[in-house]
Simulated scan of single mutants.
Amino acid sequence: MTRPTLLAQLTTTLPALAIAATLVAITAASAAAQFPPATDDQRTAGAMVAEVRFGSEELVIPRGEMVTLMTGLYDANGNVVEGAVAIVMTSGNVSPRFASITGQRVELTGELPGEGTLSAIVMVPLDQGSVRGTAGASQLGQIPVRVLDYPAALIAIAEPSHTVYTGTSVQMAAQVMTVNGTEHSTATIAWRSSAPSVAMVSGGGILTGVSAGSATLRAQTEGGISAEYTVSVVANPVTSISMLPSSTQTRRGDVVEFDIVARDADGNVVTDIALDLAVSGLQGTGGFVYDDGTFVAEETGAYRVIASTGSASAASIVEVDERAGPVEVEFLDHGVRAEVATSDLWVFEGADGEDYAYTGTHSRGGGERMFVWHVTDPTNISLLDSVVVD
């Protein structure tokens, strides 16, 4: 048996903010705490709410800063509803301020850059609504939320991954850093060269050596932040390339590893060169070759894999056959715990040579417990024990 095998499923608990008459913020550390308690009178008042109004159609928050959102609960005639209890739920990139707020105001803080939503949920009688499997709740409003990243401060340009030889291309890499020293999440970079006849660079940073010499590359964001890098282009020394195997057969989806070696006129291996790798489909169109010299085909057929630089090149023929048909899965037995939802699964061989499985559970619905199963005989799965995980 292969061990350990892990299948991980992640759940996310959204932060929540309670609004009760004067809009009081509360924490929601777990899924069970998303909805606050409400009396029958408060739920009756909630049933009168027909609309939740926000002070804007979109909420934009700078990262690390707090904004105040105006909101209110209204009935079908446009009158303010008093005494109702509601929840403002935000996506994970926005955090509530866990404090009492007077008036119809909610204070929110931008935590992480990105886009999300802000939803208003009103507590109503138990038979008049349900949200996320919880009775007595009704969603009545939603607006988009954007958290803007910290301002960009500088561009950090990395060294090229290979020596820039004439006739070769490498991808330049750079990071836009914020005033807080983190990588900016949305800033884009445009590149240009001071001497395209020596080093040509695309807007996306693909650098190609044209002739021996030096050139200055300039990287600039849409906001005007810029940095420069001086690149030296060296005459290409490669005169021959070898590629093994020269021909091979494989199956669709299997990986073929090529040994590709570039040499100069004296037979010395040139290791710091970025070779051009390409695939030509002779009888297929689904073949791919990667920078590390591996090839894989998604379709059957014959393919020519080519490595080249300057006037030197080498090629290999790969014939790709179909894989064997799928093997039918036979159901033998299953272990059931109907009162909880399974999260992760570990299957392993124990020190006694027997096979066991651990299953985790989601916290909502009575989880927070790990179950231990005996699975040596897959036709007779049995529960051995469980442990509470906090």
Rank of each mutant, 00 (worst) to 15 (best):
L6G: 02
P15K: 08
I19F: 01
I19L: 06
A20L: 11
T22V: 04
T27N: 11
F35P: 03
P36W: 11
P37D: 12
P37H: 15
T39K: 02
T39H: 06
D40N: 11
T44Q: 13
V49Y: 05
V60S: 14
V60A: 10
V60H: 08
R63S: 12
R63C: 08
E65Y: 10
M70W: 13
G72C: 10
G72K: 12
D75Y: 14
E82N: 10
A84T: 15
M89W: 03
T90K: 07
S91E: 08
I101Q: 15
T102N: 11
E115T: 09
G116E: 01
T117R: 04
V122H: 08
M123H: 01
G129K: 03
I143A: 04
V145M: 13
R146C: 12
L148Y: 03
E159W: 02
T166G: 04
A173H: 14
A173F: 08
A174I: 05
Q175M: 04
V176K: 10
T178A: 09
G181F: 07
E183K: 15
T186D: 09
S197Q: 09
V198H: 11
T208F: 06
G209I: 15
A215H: 12
L217M: 13
E222T: 09
E222Y: 04
S226F: 11
S226K: 08
Y229H: 11
V231E: 03
V233P: 13
A235P: 00
P237H: 01
P237D: 09
M243P: 11
T248V: 01
T250D: 02
V255L: 06
R263D: 03
A265G: 07
N268F: 04
V269M: 05
I273F: 07
I273Q: 15
A274E: 08
A274V: 03
S280V: 14
D291S: 08
D292H: 14
E298C: 04
A302Y: 02
S308V: 01
S316A: 05
E319Y: 07
D321Y: 15
R323L: 10
E330V: 00
H334T: 09
H334E: 07
V340S: 11
A341P: 02
D344W: 07
D355L: 15
A357N: 05
R364M: 01
F371H: 05
V372I: 13
V375K: 00
V375A: 00
T376Q: 00
I381V: 15
I381R: 00
L384N: 05
S386F: 04
V387F: 03
D390M: 14
